[in-house]
């Protein structure tokens, strides 16, 4: 049995070398064929090892396996999460703190900074699609959905942003100034949460610092980071953009409410159709 495993290991080594040569030669077809064979060999090898180690149960997930098909977004959080929250609940918590549409990266950072739990970024990639599927099969069955932010001009889903369905439409559309406005809003959210926390975790302070450096007058040095000052500075800049942004968003929100059905309002209209339609009008 051990011999077989060794044999398989040698075979995998050879396959990898062949793949490297195929890649150098620009032979994509051959490379992918070889990769397929490598994966198969890899599985055989895993099995051989498993048989070798038969007495004990295999520890940990097998190599190469990502979150399995069973890794549903509704699955409870891992051991270290403490509070048994689902992924969607954790995302909702983070978004609520931020108070504005945000990218998965920021959502993860906020959650891990404030809630001392884990939020694997990979889980967020399919979240919006799952939510949309759930909404379409049973509309409004849940108290909230994690939905898209919509681009103000075309009312199409804005790339890579998540929002909460219970937010007013104005908050969920993204005009040209909105990315900055939302950034400042998020900074305020983080700063205020820090102010409200007696002993803020170091990760949360680091998160605020990352905001602060990008806001004029928000910070003088990592040692002298003052959440109150950050919030004030963010508000000061926000005042510059707020009116124009609000006007833009309000107009777009009205259009969205007029033109889109309830699913469209949450997950975006067929943008191009709209674009063409608009051009035809």
């Amino acid at each position: 049995m051990a011999q077989l495993a060794e044999e398989l290991e040698r075979r995998m080594e050879e396959l990898r070398a062949e793949i490297r040569r195929a890649v150098i030669a620009g032979d994509r077809a051959r490379a992918s064929e070889l990769r397929r064979r490598l994966r198969a060999t890899d599985r055989e090898w895993e099995e051989a090892l498993a048989r070798l180690a038969a007495p004990q149960a295999p520890g940990g997930p097998g190599p190469g396996a990502g979150p399995g098909p069973g890794a549903d977004a509704g699955e409870p959080a891992g051991r270290r999460g403490g509070a048994l929250l689902t992924v969607r609940e954790r995302v909702h918590q983070a978004l609520t703190l931020l108070g504005a549409p945000a990218a998965p990266r920021l959502i993860v950072a906020v959650y891990e900074a404030f809630y001392a739990g884990e939020l694997p970024a990979a889980r967020l990639t399919s979240l919006r699609r799952d939510e949309e599927r759930s909404f379409r099969s049973a509309p409004h069955a849940r108290p909230y959905y994690l939905c898209a932010a919509l681009s103000a001009d075309l009312l199409a889903p804005a790339r890579g942003l998540l929002a909460v369905s219970t937010w007013p439409m104005e908050r969920r559309v993204i005009g040209p100034l909105s990315p900055r406005v939302d950034y400042l809003t998020a900074a305020i959210g983080v700063a205020e949460r820090l102010l409200a926390t007696g002993q803020p975790p170091a990760a949360a302070r680091r998160l605020l610092w990352r905001f602060a450096v990008n806001i004029p007058g928000a910070a003088s040095g990592p040692a002298g980071l003052d959440p109150g000052q950050v919030a004030a500075a963010a508000r000061a800049e926000l005042a510059v953009h707020a009116d124009a942004d609000a006007a833009h968003r309000a107009a777009a929100a009205r259009r969205a409410l007029d033109q889109l059905d309830s699913a469209g309002q949450l997950f975006g209209g067929g943008g191009l159709r709209l674009l063409r339609g608009g051009a035809a009008r």
Binding site: S151, L154, A156, R159, P176, E237, G271, L272
Partner: peptide
């Protein structure tokens, strides 16, 4: 200047990523 923050993402146009659009 501080007011200059307007941002447009041109990676796609309402999901359309074709060069022409």
């Amino acid at each position: 200047p501080i007011p200059e923050v307007s941002y447009a993402n041109l990676d796609d146009v309402a999901g359309d990523t074709s060069n022409k659009v």
